[in-house]
Amino acid sequence: MAAIPDRISLPRHRDLEGRGGGIFWRRAMVAFLAFFVIVGLANVFGQHPSDTTVTANGVSLQLHAPNALRGGLLYEASFTIHTRRALAHPTLVFSKGWPIVHTINTLEPSPVDETSRDGEIALGLGPLRAGSTYTLFGEFQVNPTSVGWWPGDVWLYDGSKRLLHIDRTIVVFP
């Protein structure tokens, strides 16, 4: 039988005495990695879009967009208005979080006008007939430097009258 190799201790390196913690931590880390993947599948880290709809006074506004995002993501959001009554000056207003979080690549169809309303972005959509549906598509890219929680509210106005409000927070992961 050859001599025990130098710096090998049989209790430590063969019988693994005092090394029970190592296997515990390895299993704990494997469990953590599996948990991380499951959380990702559950859309906690974002990208998968969801629908948010608010309705009042014969008008509904549906937002189709992901609530959680990651830096650099390209995605499309849509804002759909169904109205049972005519709207003379429908205006979608986006909270400040939208331009801070995103580079807005394009909006289709192009709004009739763009203004600032108390620091928020206001997009005039042009008159809507009763019973009509209007969808605004936006192509966005998430600014990698905007990590955190941002207000992602959207309002629908008719002129100066507020009709609908989607209360929303955008989360940006690094």
């Binding site: 090998i8 049989l10 430590r12 390196h13 063969r14 693994l16 090394r19 190592g22």
Partner: peptide, 10 residues
Amino acid sequence: RPVLNGEPVV
């Protein structure tokens, strides 16, 4: 070392 590098196992 055991944490950073691991240890040999017979």
